[in-house]
Design a protein around this nucleic acid. Sequence first.
DNA 1: TATGAATGAGGATTCATTCAT
DNA 2: AATGAATGAATCCTCATTCAT
Lengths: 201, 201, 201, 201
Amino acid sequence: MPVQPINLIRREEFIEAAIASIHKYGFHDATVNRIARDLGVSAGNIHYYFGGKDGLFEAAMHRLLSRIRHESAQQLAIAGSPEDRLRAIVSANLSPQVFQPAFCRTWLHFVAESIHRPALQRLQRVNGMRIRSNIRSVLRKIVTSAQANALTEELVALLDGLWAHRGQVDEGLEPAEALAFAMSFLNHRLAVHRLPSSPAG
Amino acid sequence: MPVQPINLIRREEFIEAAIASIHKYGFHDATVNRIARDLGVSAGNIHYYFGGKDGLFEAAMHRLLSRIRHESAQQLAIAGSPEDRLRAIVSANLSPQVFQPAFCRTWLHFVAESIHRPALQRLQRVNGMRIRSNIRSVLRKIVTSAQANALTEELVALLDGLWAHRGQVDEGLEPAEALAFAMSFLNHRLAVHRLPSSPAG
Amino acid sequence: MPVQPINLIRREEFIEAAIASIHKYGFHDATVNRIARDLGVSAGNIHYYFGGKDGLFEAAMHRLLSRIRHESAQQLAIAGSPEDRLRAIVSANLSPQVFQPAFCRTWLHFVAESIHRPALQRLQRVNGMRIRSNIRSVLRKIVTSAQANALTEELVALLDGLWAHRGQVDEGLEPAEALAFAMSFLNHRLAVHRLPSSPAG
Amino acid sequence: MPVQPINLIRREEFIEAAIASIHKYGFHDATVNRIARDLGVSAGNIHYYFGGKDGLFEAAMHRLLSRIRHESAQQLAIAGSPEDRLRAIVSANLSPQVFQPAFCRTWLHFVAESIHRPALQRLQRVNGMRIRSNIRSVLRKIVTSAQANALTEELVALLDGLWAHRGQVDEGLEPAEALAFAMSFLNHRLAVHRLPSSPAG
DNA sequence: TATGAATGAGGATTCATTCAT
DNA sequence: AATGAATGAATCCTCATTCAT
């Protein structure tokens, strides 16, 4: 059972085919036969390259989260102020490259399935910790630690909610719209903390 | 094959068992046999009462959404001002009665599955329209129509994100915490609009 | 298990419903539930009146063959010469009362199923012996014994073939047409034997 | 799911096993499991090769009718005069190769089942048209067109009746006997038309 | 008599997986 | 490296049958 990445290009093709199949047929109906057929190869290859269906799906989820992480890294590289960095993270999670139906839908399925699948759950948990850590560390430069914690959860929930929405409907929430909503949230939400006095005062 | 609700009590038992099974085994492994066995009856009954597995799951999703709707109605009944009504809606969606792991997890599965299942999608779509309509109508009494639209999407996304989070981890986000995050969002977010002048000048 | 003909009228209703269901749904899909539902009663009654599905179907086949036998008896009662008697038998088997799609189709199913069902096979065998005996006894008054044997088989095969045809297509072979074919056969076939010398002579 | 005849030999094995199973267990009890088990393979193969049970049965019926057609073609190839051709057709339909219990019984089941199964009905209909057309075209060279039509129906009904008989009883009507009856019919029936004047005067 | 809820065996079918080639 | 035939467990579902009411 050679699991070594002998042929990385081949693996990538399978992973993309898997994501495409989940998007096309749904998680339950994305069978190894269909994934392989859409790729024009035999189903046996999936076991050769990934050890089995679970292996392929884990690789696919890993790939999905890597793409988001990569997008964030790119946007953060050109960001300056803490607020710019925050906007970079949000922007990265909603960029047309990652915030596309196929990705959001597959992510939604992975999140739902991850509950009863340790391997997927681990990936999801690590990713959640990473993004929260990123956001929190930036926020602490702007607001108090307590406020940073709350705001982090709000922001993560908002992003997850937008992804869930995008994954549900074929046409509805375009990246630009989603970004507008998120930026609206961010601007208004941060504005309160920048004020000299509490509004309820 | 009576599809009409002949024996409503029996149907409720099956629906609860279905939700419990999805929570316990996951959507994919919540088979008719397991659901029936956990209830101590024969699998054939599911087809007798619901016409099939899909029928049961549709009824279960319907039940789930009804619970949330019912909770909202109750909380709204005692709410006075528009802001109170808004908090009532948020509070209802995060109350211990509905914001429980079994419900959030099942909801997460339903949302993911609904994409390729017209019957579930319809339920989800109607529910989404209803909650957005509720929130928007209240918000329009506080802020401008444009602001109401944006705020509605932000709030819905936040709630969906919190539900997704609660559905993913067995122990993590308690109803009280989630409510605190949502209220924090609501208070700070509305505060901006209550200010005499925009902070950005 | 009261199998006694307590309520003969009720039994007749079930039998007619069974034949109608076989005609309507086909033998395989004529389930006890469907038969009972079409009659507006509960499926349990079939077991009460007939001991089970097999009992009902045996009764139905018995009824079917009785109808043909009854029709033959009626036609034979008014027949005079041997040739008239022969025509009476043929006419009875193709009369509009018995040579109807529902009967022919059900008969076809019974014949096919009878092979592996002793109870049905016995009925079919007895019926076959009876009709052959009837035809042969009449023929012996017209032709030689050897010729009578051959002609009997030819005539029975012809009638069975016409029934099979009528059972297969919804609209095609009307009783009048079938009767014309059978009479054509009979007249021409008997004509040969009435000739003073063999045609090949 | 390859529907193309990739492995024709394997397909033939399944078809023969299907016919044997229908002969052995009856149509209703010829389950995919039994057919596969009798062949010493797994039931899944039937779906792999034929797409399902229906596909196998359609292929089996097709095979059955092909055999008869093939037999007719062979016999017709060596036939000379119109009457010889007629005898060839009759002889082909009653030859020991095709007029065997397994075939006649399976045919009987197919005919009965074809009523509610479009795919089987189409095969049966096409076959009926072909054989009628063959017989009629030969008969038109011997008798008038009107007589040819009637005689065709008589002959087809006779053959169908003989097949039905052969399919019903395990041992009863041997090919030689059936052929004798059919030839008796043919010779006597044609004799009338060869006479200078009708016997009825 | 009659009902209809409940059963459980048995059906076709799907699918990940294996393995000889 | 790749195929695709073959497997067998597991799934949903159907149905005749039973039985308390």
